[in-house]
Design a protein around this nucleic acid. Sequence first.
RNA 1: GCUGGUGUGGCGGAACUGGCAGACGCCCGGGACUUAAAAUCCCGUUCUGGCAACAGAGUACCGGUUCGAUUCCGGUCACCAGCACCA
Length: 802
Amino acid sequence: MSGYDFKKIEKKWQDKWEQTGVFHAKQDFSLPKFYSLIEFPYPSGQGLHVGHPRPYTAIDIVARKKRLQGYNVLYPIGWDAFGLPTENYAIKNHIHPEIVTRDNIATFKKQIKSLGFSFDWSREINTTDPQYYKWTQWIFLKLFEKGLAYKKEMAVNWCTSCKCVLANEEVVNGVCERCASDVVRKVKSQWMLKITEYAQRLIDDLDGLNYIDRVKLQQKNWIGRSTGAEVDFTATTGDKITVYTTRPDTLFGATYMVISPEHSLVDKWKGIIKNMEEVKRYREESARKSDFERTELNKDKTGVMLEGIKAVNPVNDEEIPIFISDYVLISYGTGSIMAVPGHDERDWEFASKFDLPIIEVVKGGDVTKEAYTDCDTGTMVNSGFLNGLSVEQAKIKITEFLDERGKGRQKVNYKLRDWVFSRQRYWGEPIPIINCERCGYVALKPSDLPLVLPKVDNYEPTDTGESPLAKITQWVNTTCPKCGDPAKRETDTMPQWAGSSWYFLRYCDPFNDEALASEQALDYWMPVDWYNGGMEHTTLHLLYSRFWHKFLYDEGVVTTAEPYMKRTSQGMILGENGEKMSKSRGNVVNPDEIIDEFGADTMRLYEVFIGDFEKAAPWNSSSIKGCKRFLEKVWGLMDIAEKSSEYSKELESLVHMTIKKTTHDIDSLKGNTAISAMMTLVNKIYEMGAVNTQELKTLLILLNPFAPHITEEIWEKMSFGKAVTDQKWPSYIEELCVSDSVEIAVQVNGKIKARIVVPSDVGGDEAIAAAKQDEKVSTEIAGKNIIKEFYVKGRLINIVVK
RNA sequence: GCUGGUGUGGCGGAACUGGCAGACGCCCGGGACUUAAAAUCCCGUUCUGGCAACAGAGUACCGGUUCGAUUCCGGUCACCAGCACCA
């Protein structure tokens, strides 16, 4: 038999698959369906690195197996192509982002195709295609129509030198990534989406989903539901200051208040605050910090007391001072807090630093040394009518008390914040809104979609902080769709998250111009049966897309409340040095080189064999050899099959065990152990020097999802008939998966003393009797009292003696 | 800091629901083949001691529960991911 020429073989089968369209999802909606999905890639300029194919391969294996099991499988791919890196590259190199995107996609496509994935390329989509983003804009208009898109003043990062808005990622240690100049927070009016309206449903509906636990937990904690109370304090100016607290029970211990530096009351009190100069300076300082820096627990607490104004505690009418401090964020709760230094760590630190009174209201700790934050034990003290109650009882009683007097109420709060949807950038979907002086914000007519991103030569940021689109006056100036007066277009674009929030719907029916997808197609394909993606998308992309899907469900566009039934997550492939793969670290491995040297099948095998799918694993160029050797051995099976096809019970049994293991392991993403089982089988065949046709066929089908090219080639060379893709996934016979005898470990007092071989169906008493016959064991237990005997079927015996 | 996760030989990793730790593969050592090298094949390969039989230790660290713990519980340490305008 000739050698294993992977280059020839892989080209041959890839061409064949492309010609026959064997992996295209069938239009027959009567078949059982399986929708498998990977996160569509962002086509960056660096091309693919060996990390990309890991999830693609894992889910490709699942998809290929499902096809062999008779499912109509949809395994699509497309491009999430809007975004910042492309735009920055375009600006730097003076190449239009559209061209950069087109070229990057071409590279990615070629690389991905060379791995022989069973993607349905006939459904390829691209978020930057106007025929695609027409529907992204359409969804936005729906959200706008339902009042879920609104404008709000929000802080953005502003580079004082580049004079443009920066993404958080572009701010490194408080300075601009590119020019190292200072970055300040600047307030701009932004489009927002009310994801908070869906917070409760986003938590509740997790229960029915098959997501890995840590994804569910992360999402729940990100949404961050808490039940507490709102309490209304009154300032000496007469203004109401409402705070949110999860500890209303500690109200008697509130010795001061803190409002966030950007709180509107500070502006209102401009004329009354005596130390306004100091306050102004502090506000400027905190404008330079990110929320992340501001809330760091171990940082030094800073703040300024507002002189000339006090607040009145509604429960005891005591006057307490008001501070501004940057550890209170405008974006969470009401932007102001009541401070209870006795029972909150941050308040305790702040009070200690500013010499404010610390009152103990829950007994149990020592508030002179540290805040006592335990809620489960301890009783109320120094709290008037709450004295003697538990924390839980006090929470209820105080909330009732405040409610009766109109000074407070129970309140559920979420950490989740609304989605900032505006970007002052060029390379994104234009927001289809027109601002009319007479009518306000007016939606474009759906018939005017897509609102195409104007093609311009100059897509550089403006120095006013507006989107580059603002410079294109003939595009900006238009007429109001409502009243016909001259009006201006919105010039902000959407964030990259927009296009990826609904792409899985478009795959169901990618070329429909009447709807984002037909009802029948959505009804048949949705929900996605299995969605795999990175852990890093757990709280943003995954929540955003669930939110949009729920909205579309409410609108009657889709028929399932949830988009994804199952969610798994791959670990990263690290560089050979164990560090994250990146250009700057110089440890990027290019799949092209691997494929050239070892072939796509070896590459695929190694991507899976490298380790636990859910954990990070460092790439190792010498380990790949093992996978290549295995495939060479598989190739060599043709010779063995020709020489001898003698039947052996042992081999038959091993084949059935391998079917069982591979079948289950693919479903639980444990391809690494499936491959090791197949390696064991192949090693056994070599040892025996014989394999029959049925066994070889079975092995080839089992291996086909992992190494599709070589298995098809051997199948054809052996004249086994129609291609492997037309075969059926093998089933196993449970009785054949056990061998006749087993080795059992024998322990005396938990220490292994011997191993005995017994028939696998042996009973406990017999096994223990056999163990006692063993020379070593009998000397160990001689003359001692047997206290207890344990028998674990087929595994171990433990004799406890004294 | 907050939230979630991870920690097993020289390396990647395996181990059902608490039951033989180290499957499978890489590296490495020895041997065969070869003028030689590569490739291939055979043997060995957790550590310590021993020629060996064997003995002892061992799943980040400390402690607990149990006949029995990589697995369960409490604490400590280290590392990784995310933190809302990166995707």
